[in-house]
Design a protein around this nucleic acid. Structure first.
Lengths: 222, 222
DNA sequence: TGCAGGTCGGGAAATTTGCCCGACGAAACT
DNA sequence: AGTTTCGTCGGGCAAATTTCCCGACCTGCA
């Protein structure tokens, strides 16, 4: 309470850390964002580890992060940053808008979620919101999330148990049932049964569809 | 020889058509490119059909195109544009740098191929090269291609026949063997045999691995 | 205490796979 | 023209897997 003033470091301008693994793309965002007078991109990073380092050394007001990076460790990066600074504002900037992915991002500690399909104005507005400590998401993300909160939405993964999810993950990664059984210390038969159960619960028929599901839910990184 | 001067329409400035399905990304590129004094982005498009229309009406010097668009019709768009104007300069700007994808792009009529992992300077240099009528590609693409021309490179897809590739594509898209058989007017047995052959030729064991292969080769868009 | 549900695996019939085969047409080589 | 190769298409059959049902155990919860 009495230390409130201490947290107000910058009343003017929003400093931004940009995280994306594509240099040209990053450069593009940088220009879009710096076109705003009160934005300044103070650092860039091309992977999760560098993002964490850059956050530590620059302490930006907002982190704008593409979570689909090599190693798919985007969510990990969010968790790491939040673990260090629970007040960190992280805005996820993703290609996709799967409900599960969005939820995972927020669960990991993101403050906002904007898709690359959004207009630049939406991204900019979201950054301002996040900087103010609010939560933000682009219209399309909101729509997906709203829809899924109306319909009880068995969003696929929710109906799966922990074991089932783990097996789905390894399966989508390309492991054989035998390998999975060995990894988890189960009988091959059990893994087969889980495989069957997963298909039954999700209503999917094809292994390929399972892989797609896993990827969509952020379980697997293709 | 004697008509050399006729082809020199613009000695000053390069007009560009930007094709990418993500508005923010497009905006970013636009700023990066327009930062070059002699570049001007005269039009944008967010899908294959619009790209073709924009090309018709603006006749840009260079088309900068992300080929991973909804409908995966990027290659189609290239073919369409080239069919209309065999002199069209198209620079592909892709996330991936699979040899097969690069080859497909050039086969379709692209003049250049730059990955999003390249530095902005590389993209800009490539645009200039392409505008001059040369072929261009970023260093990483060149490396992949060079490597694959040295080693006989069974780059997976090359060893597959046309039918096999089509079946792999549909399979990775999530179709069942019955559906594929129906689509292609084949017996289920034949599709099964192809499925077996694909696994045998690629050395892959799991359906999930096949899906990954298809995605990596740009056959399927997840 | 009793119920629900996740985890683990057996069993048996039905289905699919793995691998081999032959046939046909087209392109390529001799 | 003859032949070799290669892609396409499918049959056959044993072996493997999937499907679906079952029981058992453990944990949390009412």
């Amino acid at each position: 309470m009495t230390t409130a003033k201490m947290t107000v470091v910058k009343t003017r301008g929003i400093s931004i850390l940009l995280v994306d693994d594509h240099p040209v793309v990053r450069q593009g965002y940088r220009r879009v964002l710096e076109h705003q007078d009160d934005f300044s991109v103070v650092a860039e990073a091309d992977n999760a580890a560098n993002a964490y380092r850059a956050f530590k050394s620059h302490g930006p007001d907002v982190v704008v992060m593409d979570i689909s990076m090599p190693g798919a460790s985007g969510l990990e990066a969010i968790r790491n940053i939040r673990a260090r600074d629970a007040d960190a504002r992280i805005l996820v900037f993703s290609m996709h808008s799967e409900a599960a992915q969005v939820k995972a991002a927020f669960a990991a500690g993101a403050s906002g979620f904007v898709t690359k399909g959004s207009e630049p104005a939406e991204l900019i507005a979201a950054i301002r919101s996040v900087a103010r400590g609010e939560h933000a998401m682009s219209d399309d993300v909101a729509r997906v999330l709203a829809l899924e909160s109306l319909v009880p939405t068995k969003s696929a993964l929710d109906q799966l148990g922990e074991r089932e999810i783990e097996i789905l993950r390894q399966f989508a990664a390309g492991s054989t049932k035998e390998q999975i059984a060995a990894n988890l210390n189960l009988s091959t038969k059990t893994v087969q049964n889980y495989h069957y159960l997963i298909k039954a619960k999700t209503g999917l028929r094809t292994d390929a569809q399972l892989v797609r599901l896993a990827v969509e839910c952020g379980l697997a990184n293709l």
